[in-house]
């Protein structure tokens, strides 16, 4: 049963990942909540499976000429250094605390997803905020 659930959750996470929406944000909560995985284990599995999937999708995108190389060297340079720092921090934190941090991160991301799903309302919200700022001045 557990093995069945593990495969099922993998399928779900992979499906959203394949849609280009970010599979980890689905996969990590599923395995942590329903299978009782350590937060670190969930995250590690997500990283590893992403690497495998990314090889295929990068190959396809490269053939279609969709990967922009200008400027990304500097992003990667900064990213690699802080990736080590972030990962090490995740390794020393207690699983439960990391889990709560992840929950906050996920909730914030979901708000942005809602806004993306409703572009009209997003525009109105932005206008409202800028109007308010103008009034404040």
């Amino acid at each position: 049963m557990t093995i069945f659930l593990q495969i099922l959750f993998g399928l779900l996470g992979g499906f959203f990942g394949g849609l280009g929406m970010g599979g980890g944000t689905i996969l990590i909560p599923l395995t942590t909540i329903f299978l009782g995985f350590d937060q670190q284990l969930s995250q590690g599995i997500n990283l590893l499976t992403f690497l495998v999937m990314a090889v295929f999708s990068m190959w396809i995108h490269m053939r279609n000429g969709l990967i922009e190389t200008k400027g990304i060297f500097w992003i990667i340079l900064g990213g690699v250094v802080f990736a080590v720092g972030g990962s090490l921090l995740a390794m020393v934190l207690p699983s439960l605390i990391l889990r709560k941090c992840f929950g906050v991160f996920l909730s914030i991301l979901s708000v942005f997803e809602f806004l993306k799903a409703f572009p009209k309302q997003k525009k109105q919200l932005k206008n409202k905020i800028s109007n308010k700022k103008a009034q404040d001045k």
Binding site: F9, G10, F16, G23
Partner: peptide, 14 residues
């Protein structure tokens, strides 16, 4: 097990 699911699901998603 999870990895197998992700692989198949990823193909399905794309």
């Amino acid at each position: 097990t999870v990895g197998l699911g992700v692989l198949v699901g990823g193909i399905g998603g794309s």
